[in-house]
Lab assay of single mutants.
Amino acid sequence: MATDAALRRLLRLHRTEIAVAVDSAFPLLHALADHDVVPEDKFQETLHLKEKEGCPQAFHALLSWLLTQDSTAILDFWRVLFKDYNLERYGRLQPILDSFPKDVDLSQPRKGRKPPAVPKALVPPPRLPTKRKASEEARAAAPAALTPRGTASPGSQLKAKPPKKPESSAEQQRLPLGNGIQTMSASVQRAVAMSSGDVPGARGAVEGILIQQVFESGGSKKCIQVGGEFYTPSKFEDSGSGKNKARSSSGPKPLVRAKGAQGAAPGGGEARLGQQGSVPAPLALPSDPQLHQKNEDECAVCRDGGELICCDGCPRAFHLACLSPPLREIPSGTWRCSSCLQATVQEVQPRAEEPRPQEPPVETPLPPGLRSAGEEVRGPPGEPLAGMDTTLVYKHLPAPPSAAPLPGLDSSALHPLLCVGPEGQQNLAPGARCGVCGDGTDVLRCTHCAAAFHWRCHFPAGTSRPGTGLRCRSCSGDVTPAPVEGVLAPSPARLAPGPAKDDTASHEPALH
């Protein structure tokens, strides 16, 4: 009773807030009518008042009428009001819900409408889902798969039609296919003929059939049928067999079959498995989609049935006599038709004709302190090069084509190399640097090759510096006499390219 009084008091307290929050009759008014909170006449009256005075006034009048009803109607109103779709449509209802007392429970059932309790003993237990329907569909599909699609060729003596089998029958139906081979029951999904010589313990000319048996419980189990008994694959494991010639990621696949039913060829011909030897223990289905393919039931050349050999690369099948050149017997292992072999060759040939990528240039590290003349020119003028003790990398590039010797140069053309002071002394051009340390401070000019250098860098042994005729380390061993002091540049003949010694390969005349 306390809860009923509290709900009535809360409705009177929030009546105006609810009326202002509800700006549309749908969905709240319609939901109240659906849950029998508002009768039909009051529903029509509220809609009429909404058209006349507006939605807030109409709902305020409806809530005032609701306060005169019993506690069950008020409880049902609060339940409908706080439904998710009403809270989404009328956003101003959320503060009312947040301020609702926590001790007021809106989930209690309506009085007088409590459903009768059902004894637990009368409640049926839930049924577990079964796979009976899938099993029945598999039974119905198996006879259809064994139905012949056409008439065999005159040369083929193997013609068999499976008798119709009602689904209610649980007995196995067997077809006489000759040579002791028996087909599987209607619940078998796949059958492959297997030679009895590969099964340990088999006697006589009995041949087993590799099947997948579907049981009534819905589970499946792969086994071997020899005669009327089934054997699990673990009985046929043979770890010492060295003649297993397995197909790549293979499961067994029928390579020879008669049109209309699988079996042995007439005249004692023995149908073979995809792999010879003992049956392997793992009978998992292969991951290669080509091995799941269903080959055609007629020859791809003459479009006739009979004894066919199936290609492992495509769905086509052929007569042995229709092949070019014809085959006398079934080859062992994987067999592919000429079209598949030709496609494989065409895929391999473009790969062989692809040009080989060019090898990157060989990189040879230079000892610290040495650099090529090109690196000396590329440096920024007026700045010493940083990191001189790091190992430089010199790339061996292809030799350029031989060019004509340089033409003779006048001494005026070499004027930018040297600057003559007032006393006739050779001065260095701006930006000249030593080729060893890279520093341009207090550098000297070689009178023979006009290269800038430090005496301490080229002659670290402490050799005394002569007063005139300074030469760098590369030119100090040259027998050519030094030019007379005061000459602007060496003779043009000295600039012609010539053979250089091994220790002077990195010091070429550089223009500054």
Results as ranks from 00 to 15, higher is better:
residue 102 K to E: 13
residue 38 V to G: 00
residue 161 K to A: 05
residue 219 G to C: 15
residue 8 R to F: 01
residue 87 L to H: 00
residue 146 L to R: 03
residue 133 K to C: 02
residue 23 D to H: 14
residue 232 T to E: 11
residue 110 R to D: 15
residue 199 V to E: 08
residue 50 K to A: 00
residue 116 P to W: 12
residue 106 L to V: 05
residue 140 A to T: 12
residue 57 Q to M: 00
residue 202 A to T: 07
residue 194 M to Y: 06
residue 130 T to P: 14
residue 242 G to S: 06
residue 5 A to D: 09
residue 58 A to K: 00
residue 193 A to V: 02
residue 46 T to F: 00
residue 240 G to K: 11
residue 78 W to Q: 00
residue 76 D to E: 02
residue 7 L to K: 01
residue 142 A to Y: 12
residue 16 T to W: 00
residue 93 L to M: 01
residue 208 G to A: 02
residue 234 S to E: 05
residue 37 V to S: 00
residue 162 P to L: 10
residue 45 E to S: 00
residue 16 T to C: 03
residue 4 D to V: 03
residue 52 K to L: 11
residue 177 L to S: 05
residue 262 Q to G: 14
residue 15 R to C: 00
residue 129 P to G: 09
residue 47 L to K: 00
residue 156 S to T: 15
residue 191 A to K: 04
residue 218 G to R: 12
residue 64 S to C: 00
residue 250 S to G: 08
residue 46 T to S: 04
residue 20 V to P: 02
residue 115 P to H: 10
residue 192 V to S: 06
residue 268 G to L: 11
residue 121 A to K: 13
residue 75 L to Y: 15
residue 185 S to R: 08
residue 162 P to T: 05
residue 245 K to V: 14
residue 99 S to Y: 00
residue 101 P to S: 00
residue 185 S to N: 08
residue 67 L to N: 03
residue 270 E to T: 06
residue 107 S to I: 10
residue 20 V to G: 01
residue 66 L to A: 05
residue 90 Y to G: 00
residue 21 A to L: 01
residue 100 F to H: 06
residue 232 T to P: 08
residue 86 N to A: 00
residue 103 D to S: 15
residue 186 A to N: 04
residue 98 D to R: 05
residue 93 L to H: 01
residue 106 L to A: 01
residue 114 K to L: 10
residue 213 Q to E: 06
residue 59 F to N: 01
residue 107 S to T: 07
residue 168 S to C: 10
residue 119 P to N: 10
residue 239 S to F: 11
residue 256 V to W: 14
residue 28 L to Q: 05
residue 164 K to S: 13
residue 55 C to I: 13
residue 252 P to Y: 06
residue 16 T to F: 01
residue 96 I to P: 01
residue 273 L to G: 09
residue 106 L to M: 02
residue 24 S to P: 00
residue 81 L to G: 01
residue 42 K to T: 01
residue 136 E to A: 12
residue 25 A to S: 03
residue 246 A to W: 15
residue 107 S to G: 06
residue 227 G to S: 03
residue 54 G to W: 02
residue 139 R to L: 13
residue 183 T to L: 06
residue 119 P to M: 05
residue 250 S to R: 02
residue 265 A to W: 05
residue 229 E to D: 08
residue 144 A to Y: 15
residue 117 A to K: 04
residue 107 S to L: 11
residue 39 P to Q: 03
residue 85 Y to C: 03
residue 200 P to Q: 12
residue 216 E to V: 03
residue 261 A to T: 11
residue 248 S to D: 13
residue 176 P to G: 07
residue 18 I to K: 03
residue 14 H to P: 00
residue 94 Q to H: 08
residue 269 G to H: 10
residue 63 L to K: 00
residue 184 M to N: 02
residue 239 S to R: 12
residue 118 V to A: 10
residue 149 R to G: 06
residue 202 A to H: 10
residue 253 K to S: 07
residue 61 A to R: 06
residue 208 G to V: 02
residue 82 F to R: 03
residue 211 I to V: 12
residue 64 S to F: 02
residue 33 A to C: 08
residue 12 R to W: 01
residue 121 A to H: 02
residue 182 Q to S: 11
residue 52 K to S: 08
residue 16 T to Q: 00
residue 9 R to H: 02
residue 5 A to S: 13
residue 87 L to T: 01
residue 174 R to G: 05
residue 246 A to S: 07
residue 44 Q to K: 14
residue 188 V to A: 05
residue 239 S to N: 14
residue 71 S to V: 03
residue 199 V to K: 07
residue 180 G to F: 01
residue 248 S to R: 03
residue 7 L to D: 00
residue 260 G to I: 14
residue 94 Q to M: 15
residue 221 K to P: 07
residue 270 E to A: 07
residue 39 P to F: 14
residue 190 R to F: 00
residue 273 L to V: 10
residue 185 S to L: 01
residue 148 P to N: 05
residue 261 A to S: 05
residue 169 S to Y: 15
residue 231 Y to Q: 05
residue 230 F to E: 04
residue 207 E to G: 11
residue 269 G to S: 13
residue 10 L to Q: 00
residue 42 K to A: 00
residue 243 K to G: 10
residue 158 L to I: 09
residue 159 K to E: 09
residue 189 Q to E: 10
residue 165 K to N: 08
residue 238 D to E: 06
residue 60 H to R: 02
residue 22 V to F: 01
residue 54 G to P: 01
residue 260 G to Y: 12
residue 223 C to N: 04
residue 16 T to K: 01
residue 148 P to Y: 15
residue 20 V to C: 00
residue 10 L to Y: 10
residue 152 A to Y: 13
residue 150 G to A: 00
residue 161 K to M: 08
residue 55 C to W: 00
residue 61 A to N: 05
residue 239 S to D: 02
residue 229 E to P: 06
residue 184 M to Q: 06
residue 231 Y to K: 03
residue 202 A to S: 08
residue 102 K to C: 09
residue 56 P to G: 04
residue 24 S to K: 15
residue 27 P to F: 01
residue 47 L to W: 00
residue 207 E to K: 02
residue 155 G to S: 05
residue 32 L to Q: 00
residue 227 G to H: 03
residue 202 A to Y: 12
residue 144 A to L: 12
residue 159 K to S: 08
residue 11 L to K: 04
residue 63 L to Y: 00
residue 21 A to R: 01
residue 151 T to K: 08
residue 247 R to H: 00
residue 267 G to E: 15
residue 174 R to T: 05
residue 163 P to L: 08
residue 82 F to T: 01
residue 103 D to I: 03
residue 208 G to T: 04
residue 246 A to G: 06
residue 190 R to E: 06
residue 14 H to N: 15
residue 226 V to T: 07
residue 217 S to H: 11
